[in-house]
Amino acid sequence: MKHLKSMNKKAHLINQAINPEQVEEVVAMQTVVGCTATTDPGWELDPFGGLGSLCQPMESDLYGCADACWWPAQVPDTMSTYPDWGNGVAKADEDWRKLDGIFEDGE
């Protein structure tokens, strides 16, 4: 699978996996700082280092993923840390413009 090469140093290892279920037995995928290596499903990258197996567009099943705090460092986890995130944005695929980020006070 050619498209593995770009973002993923250990792609050759993952490349040896025959199907997605076997991927997790191989090795953690290393990605650019700030991205999650949790790729089942992934937020930035799928288990193959590509985009083909992501939930796309991301708005389509956003809460299904965020409610379960699947990527708590990228999408606010509404299970325990940010219960109110997404309030007033019932359908992310229609109201995505209102989704705001959590910005920590960096001063």
């Binding site: 700030g34 991205c35 930035e44 990258l45 991301m58 708590p72 606010p76 980020g101 959590i102 920590e104």
Partner: peptide, 16 residues
């Protein structure tokens, strides 16, 4: 160089 254009990061901490 390799560039991934991705979806937003909704949680921005002082240190990633």
């Amino acid at each position: 160089g390799n560039l991934l254009v991705s979806v937003p990061d909704f949680v921005r901490r002082v240190l990633d």
